[in-house]
Nucleic acid binder design. Structure first.
Lengths: 232, 232
DNA sequence: CATATTAATTGATAATTATCAAGCGAAAGT
DNA sequence: ACTTTCGCTTGATAATTATCAATTAATATG
């Protein structure tokens, strides 16, 4: 593990207030690994042996049932994943695979739980993180149950636009087949839905999206902070 | 607030390990109220002034967007709701209404946050609770994205059967129109889906469900602990 | 650079799910 | 007991979404 890795990990809200003693204790058993793309890091149902931390690259969290598969979320640096399973010492509910070449820190779950038991501030930091995650999933579920696929796509574009700086031209942040899966639709449907949004001033060329009529798209998408805001 | 209320609240894992001092501090500003059915207790988007605790009755958590509405979950005694909003001091993501005559404790959010800051054990109890909630929503999302409405209904019946003791005859635990909303379908569709499950040995009479061919239903529903188990 | 592979698109069709309208039936109120 | 209300059901139809097959575009590989 490099010194810069340590520094990066320290950045995260989760470890910010940790005493140096406890932080060292956590890092003692931790190790860093570089993975090529498309490597399955964890499989749902397995015991949660490590808390994972993404230093660089990107990780897809997905789930399967009865031969079907769906992308649940994408984890980007710098953040952890499967914190809830680690803390509860419960099996993973989702599988994870690298989307790109990724640098991942693996922290033994038992160490995390030990520091959690010993350090109230760490426990409080975990609360903040979990509450955030919980609210994100609630928002995702609201979107799934209240919006059609075209509406989900429109709102996704608006969120993506905002994150990219708010300008009329921006890039999709992952390939369309996974975007389709994240939005709960098939790739074919996404392709047609993107065409359908042409009526509202959306033009797509490969990964590049241009929103020519912002008002029109806004009026159709009806974004709502209680579904679309990352903050709240 | 009655002495028995205090006792009931103490039962909950969240408050179990709290010192008497901290528990009293929490209860000092709390008050209990009895509500008739169909009363809106909180509205999504409002600031989270109180942590709510259901002593008896039942509460529906629901959300709206663009004139549509969906039931997200049902809270039954003894448990809290909107813990995440309280802790993050963020607006509610869901509205809540009583389903039946209900007895609810309201604990000022600022008091909860104060004890949370002062008491590491309380923070740890909140972690356990939030991690549990998080995992429940993840399971719900997996179910929504991976299963058709007929499959969701079949698995709901199996879960309900298990909870009712596992026998072949049991009762639905809420009215069909809300069940439909919880399962992400229309009441009309639920009605037809219940008929569709006759092929798999399910008979419904009002709220009473009879599963005559368990093997057949199991084979169709394909329940999975990573979606259907309340525990894990 | 040519070729192999994979992703994206398109068309045709089927399955799923929702909407609208009407009727039935149980429960609540008078 | 009567009526009113509301939830549930059923039928007909429409909208949404998925599947299958084929083609095109883009990317990777030797």
């Amino acid at each position: 593990m490099l010194a810069s890795d340590n520094h990066d990990i320290r950045q995260l809200g989760l470890f910010e207030k940790l005493s140096d003693t406890h932080f060292s204790a956590l890092m003692r058993g931790a190790y860093v690994q570089n993975f090529p793309p498309q490597i399955e890091l964890i499989t749902e149902g397995e015991p949660s042996d490590f808390l994972h931390f993404v230093l660089s690259g990107a990780v897809d969290l997905f789930s399967s049932w009865n031969g079907r598969e769906t992308s649940m979320a994408t984890v980007r640096p710098l953040s952890t994943f499967i914190l809830a399973a680690t803390i509860r010492n419960a099996p993973y509910l989702m599988s994870a695979r690298t989307l790109e070449k990724s640098r991942i820190v693996l922290i033994p779950s038992q160490d995390v739980r030990a520091i959690f038991d010993a350090d109230g501030d760490f426990a409080r930091a975990i609360v903040a993180e979990l509450a955030q995650c919980y609210r994100s999933v609630i928002k995702a579920q609201k979107e799934l149950k209240l919006r059609t696929s075209l509406e989900r796509l429109a709102n996704y574009l608006l969120r993506q636009q905002k994150q990219a700086g708010g300008g009329p031209v921006f890039e999709l942040d992952f390939e369309k087949r996974r975007l389709a899966s994240v939005l709960g639709m098939t790739p074919e449907n996404l392709s047609r839905a993107l065409k359908g949004l042409q009526h509202y001033g959306v033009a797509v060329d490969g990964m590049r999206v241009t929103i020519s009529d912002q008002t029109d798209l806004d009026r159709f998408a009806k974004p709502n902070p209680l579904i679309d805001d990352f903050r709240t």
